[in-house]
Computed example of a mutant assay.
Amino acid sequence: MSVLMPCLNAGRYLGPCLDSVVDQLGPQDELIVQDALSTDGSAEVLDRYAARTPKMLVVREKDGGQSDALNRALRRARGDYVWWVNADDLVLPGAFEVVRGELERRASLPDVVVGGWRLVGGGGEVVRESPARELDRGRLLVQGCYAFSGAMLVRRDLLLLLRGYSRDLHYVMDFDLMLKLADAAQVVVPRPLGALRYHDASKSGGLGRRFFTEGAVVRWRGRRTDLDVVRAVAGTAWHAAGVATARLRFGPTYTRLRERWSTRAEPSA
């Protein structure tokens, strides 16, 4: 596996992120950090980890944004699978081992591995846990990213065939990629693999309007049928409501209500 980590001033979250990856690297794995000339001390943290981690490569250079940084790291990758981990997120303990075991049991390798994920706050507290679900075009158009890029592996050769991450996108390149991967051969791992950290300085935490604009563009260009048009319009409206209520939805009260509703909505056996 090749772990791609774009980094720009990750601050206090960088160390825990690196720990979550480095401690799980196997002999054939690698970690490629693409640092966009961080100025907050992240460079020194990266140097310390790289000095004791032979399979870690740190590249410092100016880039054109997160998608460009990922594509630069992708060109250096040599693993069969790519795992994208942002520098403020986490790979959960045991995730690499679970994925390796899942792949070794299969006669033919899938294009995509999708796991469950957690939403955590700035202090690491679990806000919500989302189950693993196969990528489905219709559902993605309506719901957006119900999967998490940090809990998803993609075959490197397929990612290269898709020309990597869309450079014209700065906030929803993960959503765009999931729509492209929905037709690929997938394996769902029924346990959480990664954690998305939600905090004020993160893209998810502070740039809702820009997320909305790019999300609407990706939905529209991802349509294929008349039904997709309806789904894209409904998804855009749903996204607008989500942006307006983001802080409420990521709070503990909403999470408790959501879990209670989900339990009641589960179909009986």
Score class of each variant (00 low, 15 high):
residue 10 A to D: 13
residue 10 A to M: 02
residue 10 A to Q: 09
residue 11 G to V: 00
residue 15 G to Q: 12
residue 15 G to E: 08
residue 16 P to C: 10
residue 16 P to A: 03
residue 17 C to D: 03
residue 19 D to H: 12
residue 23 D to K: 09
residue 26 G to Q: 07
residue 26 G to E: 06
residue 38 S to P: 13
residue 38 S to Y: 11
residue 57 L to G: 00
residue 60 R to M: 05
residue 61 E to Q: 13
residue 68 D to Y: 02
residue 72 R to C: 04
residue 75 R to I: 00
residue 77 A to E: 00
residue 79 G to A: 01
residue 81 Y to K: 05
residue 82 V to T: 04
residue 86 N to E: 12
residue 94 G to Q: 03
residue 95 A to S: 11
residue 98 V to E: 10
residue 107 A to I: 11
residue 110 P to T: 03
residue 113 V to I: 08
residue 120 V to G: 00
residue 130 S to V: 13
residue 130 S to P: 00
residue 131 P to D: 01
residue 136 D to C: 03
residue 143 Q to T: 10
residue 144 G to W: 05
residue 144 G to E: 08
residue 148 F to G: 00
residue 152 M to H: 11
residue 152 M to W: 06
residue 159 L to V: 11
residue 160 L to F: 08
residue 167 R to N: 14
residue 173 M to W: 08
residue 174 D to N: 14
residue 177 L to F: 14
residue 177 L to M: 14
residue 179 L to A: 11
residue 179 L to Y: 10
residue 181 L to K: 12
residue 181 L to H: 15
residue 182 A to F: 13
residue 183 D to V: 14
residue 186 Q to E: 11
residue 188 V to I: 07
residue 192 P to L: 13
residue 195 A to F: 09
residue 200 D to T: 04
residue 200 D to A: 15
residue 200 D to R: 05
residue 209 R to M: 04
residue 210 R to Y: 05
residue 212 F to M: 10
residue 216 A to L: 11
residue 217 V to E: 07
residue 218 V to Q: 02
residue 219 R to F: 01
residue 220 W to H: 04
residue 221 R to W: 04
residue 222 G to L: 02
residue 227 L to A: 12
residue 232 A to L: 06
residue 234 A to N: 08
residue 236 T to K: 05
residue 239 H to L: 11
residue 240 A to T: 09
residue 246 A to N: 13
residue 247 R to A: 09
residue 252 P to Q: 13
residue 253 T to P: 03
residue 255 T to S: 15
residue 258 R to V: 08
